[in-house]
Amino acid sequence: MGVIRYLRDIWRGAVSLARGMRRTLYYFLRPKEIITQQYPDNRLTLNLPERFKGEVVMPHNENNEHRCTGCQACELACPNGSLKVIYKYEITAEGKKKKAIDKLVYHLELCTMCNLCIEACPSDAIKMAQTFEHSVFDRSQLIKILNKPGSKIMEGVE
């Protein structure tokens, strides 16, 4: 009995190993199953989903206008302090003082892409972009100013 069980153990073990080897051979013989994406080469065809959270950007229209009122809602919503609103007062046509942004400083190196600032923004001034290649040699290059130089607030945005 002992001998039979001994030999049966060997047989079972061998079969289980052979099944595993059959599976790896299956993939060895089928190059079609290869799933590697050759990343830098396929950059042009790379399609990121529209909701992908790459970085915070502020869209400007062709007249170099944005929608940011400088209300600081995004700054308050951010868990890490990645956004800083530096504001100034502008004199409007009616001669009133009006709060507006001087700079919207964005610390990409602190950002966790949690989307809270976009949710918080009352005037849809900022959104998430699909860029993802953020590596730079110097950390200070990750500090970005979102509004373009010389830009001003769009008409009708309160």
Binding site: R51, K53, T112, M113
Partner: peptide, 11 residues
């Protein structure tokens, strides 16, 4: 990624 916008820490 399609629904949440991120792959690991979806938020």
């Amino acid at each position: 990624e399609e629904t949440c916008g991120a792959r690991l820490t979806m938020n």
